[in-house]
Measured scan of single mutants.
Amino acid sequence: TRVETATETAWISLVTALHLVLGLSAVLGLLLLRWQFPAHYRRLRHALW
């Protein structure tokens, strides 16, 4: 049971790290898009909202 718990903890930390990385890359990508294509971003936002 001790090994299982350790594996579970490792998986949880791995998944958390993955989610953090994905979230950060998504935010960075959005910022980059907004910085590179302001007109396109505004049009996209206008279409979405």
Score class of each variant (00 low, 15 high):
residue 33 L to G: 05
residue 45 R to Y: 06
residue 17 A to G: 07
residue 20 L to T: 07
residue 35 W to C: 13
residue 9 T to F: 10
residue 11 W to F: 10
residue 19 H to S: 02
residue 32 L to Q: 05
residue 19 H to T: 01
residue 39 A to N: 15
residue 41 Y to F: 13
residue 38 P to D: 14
residue 7 T to G: 09
residue 7 T to Y: 13
residue 10 A to W: 03
residue 15 V to N: 07
residue 42 R to G: 13
residue 47 A to Q: 08
residue 34 R to K: 15
residue 26 A to Y: 05
residue 12 I to D: 01
residue 3 V to Q: 00
residue 38 P to L: 09
residue 6 A to W: 04
residue 30 L to M: 14
residue 21 V to I: 10
residue 30 L to R: 03
residue 13 S to K: 07
residue 40 H to N: 08
residue 14 L to Y: 01
residue 35 W to K: 11
residue 47 A to L: 08
residue 16 T to S: 10
residue 48 L to Y: 06
residue 20 L to I: 11
residue 37 F to T: 03
residue 29 G to C: 14
residue 32 L to E: 03
residue 18 L to N: 04
residue 49 W to C: 05
residue 30 L to V: 11
residue 45 R to T: 06
residue 19 H to K: 03
residue 49 W to E: 01
residue 39 A to C: 06
residue 27 V to F: 13
residue 20 L to W: 07
residue 45 R to D: 04
residue 46 H to Q: 12
residue 11 W to N: 01
residue 9 T to S: 12
residue 28 L to A: 04
residue 17 A to T: 08
residue 49 W to D: 00
residue 43 R to E: 07
residue 32 L to N: 05
residue 24 L to N: 01
residue 10 A to P: 06
residue 33 L to C: 15
residue 9 T to R: 12
residue 48 L to E: 06
residue 44 L to V: 14
residue 6 A to Y: 04
residue 33 L to A: 15
residue 46 H to V: 07
residue 34 R to Q: 07
residue 38 P to C: 04
residue 22 L to W: 03
residue 14 L to K: 01
residue 34 R to G: 06
residue 43 R to K: 12
residue 10 A to H: 07
residue 41 Y to K: 04
residue 28 L to M: 12
residue 2 R to T: 13
residue 45 R to F: 03
residue 7 T to W: 11
residue 5 T to L: 03
residue 41 Y to T: 11
residue 11 W to C: 05
residue 10 A to Q: 10
residue 14 L to A: 05
residue 34 R to F: 05
residue 26 A to E: 03
residue 39 A to R: 15
residue 42 R to C: 08
residue 45 R to H: 06
residue 48 L to S: 06
residue 15 V to W: 00
residue 12 I to Q: 09
residue 33 L to Q: 05
residue 33 L to W: 10
residue 3 V to N: 01
residue 20 L to F: 13
residue 11 W to Y: 12
residue 21 V to L: 12
residue 46 H to I: 06
residue 15 V to L: 09
residue 39 A to K: 13
residue 3 V to S: 03
residue 35 W to F: 15
residue 18 L to A: 02
residue 34 R to P: 05
residue 14 L to E: 00
residue 13 S to C: 14
residue 31 L to K: 04
residue 23 G to T: 13
residue 7 T to D: 07
residue 44 L to K: 01
residue 42 R to Y: 14
residue 23 G to Q: 06
residue 30 L to D: 03
residue 17 A to D: 03
residue 13 S to I: 13
residue 2 R to P: 13
residue 26 A to G: 11
residue 25 S to H: 04
residue 24 L to Q: 05
residue 27 V to M: 14
residue 28 L to E: 02
residue 32 L to I: 07
residue 27 V to L: 13
residue 30 L to C: 14
residue 3 V to I: 14
residue 25 S to R: 03
residue 21 V to N: 02
residue 29 G to K: 02
residue 31 L to P: 05
residue 17 A to Y: 00
residue 2 R to N: 09
residue 21 V to G: 07
